[in-house]
Write a protein that binds this DNA or RNA. Sequence first.
DNA 1: CAAAATTAATTTCCAATTTAAGTATATAGT
DNA 2: ACTATATACTTAAATTGGAAATTAATTTTG
Lengths: 142, 142
Amino acid sequence: MPRNDQQIENYIAYLMAQAHRKLHLDLEKSLKSEGMQVEHWRILEILSERKGQIAGNLAKIVLMNPPALTKMIDRMVANGYVHRLVDNVDQRKVRIFITEHGYHLFLKLQNLADAQNNTVNNRFGNKKMEKLKTLLNQLILS
Amino acid sequence: MPRNDQQIENYIAYLMAQAHRKLHLDLEKSLKSEGMQVEHWRILEILSERKGQIAGNLAKIVLMNPPALTKMIDRMVANGYVHRLVDNVDQRKVRIFITEHGYHLFLKLQNLADAQNNTVNNRFGNKKMEKLKTLLNQLILS
DNA sequence: CAAAATTAATTTCCAATTTAAGTATATAGT
DNA sequence: ACTATATACTTAAATTGGAAATTAATTTTG
């Protein structure tokens, strides 16, 4: 069992948290110009393509716990960005749909997210970015 | 300006969040066996080497906002894991020290963190892990 | 087919986080 | 030296998040 040589920077969990925080704060700051958070963007991004996602599945994809998603969807319904519909065949399931208003907002958020992504890409270099993405994907699936 | 090809998995911010969540939840679960959280481990890890860290600097290193750190330190003082000391030369600064009791806890948490790190390392492969760490470090510094 | 078990989403209650404001100390400029 | 500005941490108020319990629908099983 190798010792971790006493440096927190040697733990993958810490390094990942550092890198994540950097990107997350940066994106959060950008989205705040529209009064929205990272999770709003994720939700709208998913719903814009995969319409009528079931709540539980949506929670997994957008990396939220079910109770937190329920509350965020409540607020987004109140603001008219999405709406809920109970599934016809299995009435336990709740499907979430994006509205016109929500889609309009999404397009703005997408521009901000794309801008951040391009900035990071340019600053870091395309080739290294692709290598990093590949490794992250493999870690996620491992 | 390249479009992001409509897939959330293509955004580095999302991929990083996914990878981070996986590692974080896993470590969190492990530390819960001692009733502690990831941030507790980070704080004790830093204080075990770099004694008397100034609060603001500690907050940066352990990736917390100052008010959140203040309250976590309050709780850790109440439990006898750390204590505070106002800096002699600049009385605005508060230095945080680990106690004997805190160090004893730290050793247990370190074992859990090391175990996770080794598990990920073995599952993912040492060589790829080193490559990933290098890239993450470069991203953090970029 | 009825009872038990499972699945899905939500609610409740409590603890933790965030934002903004506040307090205290230190530094800079005139 | 005195006022203005900046820095460091904490506090306060409002919001959010999480764990456990709840409600409801579906599926399994004896």
